[in-house]
Amino acid sequence: MSVLVYTETDQGKLKKTALEVASYAKAVADKLGSSVTAVCINADDASQLGQYGVNKVLNIDYEGEFNAKRYASFIGQAAQQEGADVVVVSQSADSRYIAPILSVGLEATYASNVIGEPSSTNPFIVQRNTFTNKAIGDLEMKSGKKILGLSSNAYGVHENPVDSSVEGFSPEKVDSGIKVQSVDKAGGTVSIADADIVVSGGRGLKGPENWGMIEELAEVLGAATACSKPVSDLGWRPHSEHVGQTGKPVASNLYIAVGISGAIQHLAGINASKVKVVINTDPEAPFFKAADYGVVGDAFEVVPQLIEKLKEFKAQNA
């Protein structure tokens, strides 16, 4: 018996969330007294997973586009082979797509948005975010097999070196009625889902011509850029940057909101982020109640200064 973890790759490279789910799977396996097997697709260097507690890696050589049904079946076949009762996945868009399909295939229960280690393994109880992060629920999972979807940045990456082996794995390839026609990658270098830091701009920035400083701030921090809903509705920024209840969810380590008032629908999508900084001219803006750090000031003065100071800081700490 082992805990199986699906460690995602992007063009052959393991994603940061892959290291996080591997670290988490190790913690769950320790509680259950079992080992960790990772399954990945086209990983160039899967052996590094041993640093995070993975005993064995099943690496699949796959040609073709992402297909959720096929990937779910790959993970399911790995789980069968390894006799895994617990499968850990991330909460990337791909994994959120795969997990419910996998859950039917394995007849396993699935808990999404999990935020920590099981508080007990018998009964099996995990904490998950509910009500758009306004409440945490202790969920008891009664079935024999379980899938845990770990919310990103909820556990962190923890080194835990173990002896590890990498094996090729050639699961059966199921048919699918879905064929990818075209893929349109967004321009930004860091995606909102993968980012440790997200810099987000609101209507307070007045117009699309003022986003240069937001992009520069993001670049200095290695952050992804995001925006509030009206900003994408007005066409100032692409829809793919819209975050909040009706947009993308954000669970970064640091979220910097510039010229965003902090409406409840905005906060619903971003409050899983660990540390929030708000820059706003209005000391009464609701965001200040939800933030950890705040600057009451004009973004057009504060942001350029912050960029300069961050550059100095980076130069000193390089």
Binding site: T109, K134, E140, G294, V302
Partner: peptide, 29 residues
């Protein structure tokens, strides 16, 4: 159903926001 919530909690109340003077951004960093 194979799952049930045994308890709900509210997230720990957040401390008050720490305000930083716009002229002292080194402090924010």
């Amino acid at each position: 159903a194979d799952t049930s919530f045994v308890k709900f909690h509210k997230p720990a109340p957040k401390g008050a926001v720490k305000l930083v003077d716009p002229d002292k951004l080194d402090e924010l960093i």
